[in-house]
């Protein structure tokens, strides 16, 4: 396992020609055992290249969300370390922003306040933070809904609020935990396309968790396949597609479809 991930990080380094060579996130020897004996992760090593979208893909229960939350600093690890920009971290930080699967919106606050919440916690003055919030509400396509409450929005709209909130704090790293899982299929496709569009302008490093192979390949620059519990990285696949291509074309491209089939074959073995 260690050999593969070292090779993977070398690969990652080679690919980042236009960007700095060191990965922005590095996890070394991560092990996580929950109280009660459930071993979620075992000796996991991985490097996430700067400015790229990496997906953690794997069967249910393989620990991908656990890994994501450990990187976010929301879960304690049993062993190992997380390095951001080469420095060890052990808690949440301003350089990482999390997007939750169940949106985690405060239902008593308006959309505007929800989006500005990250800034509110950083004591950014009210006028400034509301301005920034408005900007990002516009960017995710929700302008006009600033004074609405979460219960008045559909699932897709609520996730946009979550995304806007994560963007508003201007963190270098976006951690997204199956953000489109609670959303219907049509909205989900639109979201994927919108997300790619956003990332063109925002230039962030994204770590994305999903169990949808298509979504993983469509969105990411590389996909890290995880083994079932206890999870570790099985294989890293480069799935970079040309940016700016018509999404319909991409989804029908032969290479894309081959990739989907390959990954499916690998994952199929682990389905009981």
């Amino acid at each position: 396992m260690g050999g593969i991930s070292r090779r993977a990080s070398e690969l990652a380094k080679e690919e980042n020609n236009n960007m700095q060579n060191s990965p922005i996130i590095e996890v070394r020897g991560i092990s996580k055992t929950y109280e009660g004996g459930c071993e979620a992760l075992r000796n996991l090593n991985m490097a996430f290249p700067r400015g790229e979208l990496t997906t953690l893909l794997g069967p249910s229960g393989c620990g991908k969300t656990t890994l994501l939350k450990i990187i976010a600093g929301l879960l304690e690890l049993t062993r190992g370390e997380v390095l951001i920009e080469g420095k060890k971290v052990d808690g949440p930080g301003p350089e990482r922003a999390f997007v939750f699967q169940d949106f985690a919106l405060m239902p008593w606050a308006t959309v505007l306040r929800n989006v500005a919440f990250g800034l509110e916690l950083r004591q950014v003055p009210k006028k400034e933070r509301l301005e920034i919030a408005r900007k990002y509400i516009d960017e995710v396509g929700l302008s006009g809904f600033e004074t609405s409450y979460p219960h008045e929005l559909s699932g897709g709209m609520r996730q946009r609020v979550g995304l806007a909130r994560a963007l508003a704090v201007d963190a270098e790293i976006l951690l997204m935990d199956e953000p489109f899982a609670s959303v219907d299929e049509q909205t989900r496709r639109k979201f994927q396309e919108d997300l790619l569009g956003l990332l063109e302008t925002e230039k962030k490093t994204v770590v994305f968790v999903t169990h949808s192979i298509e979504e993983a390949i469509y969105l990411s620059d590389q996909v890290a396949l995880m083994t079932p519990r206890p999870g570790s990285i099985m294989k890293i696949v480069n799935t970079k597609t040309e940016r700016g291509r018509n999404p319909e074309e991409v989804r029908r491209d032969k290479k894309y479809l081959d990739c989907v089939e390959d990954l499916w074959q690998i994952l199929k073995q682990y389905l009981v």
Binding site: T33, Y34, E35, G36, G37, C38, L74, L75, E76
Partner: peptide
């Protein structure tokens, strides 16, 4: 949840 879901052992 952080400390881990207790398995019903």
């Amino acid at each position: 949840r952080e400390k881990g879901v207790r398995m019903p052992i």
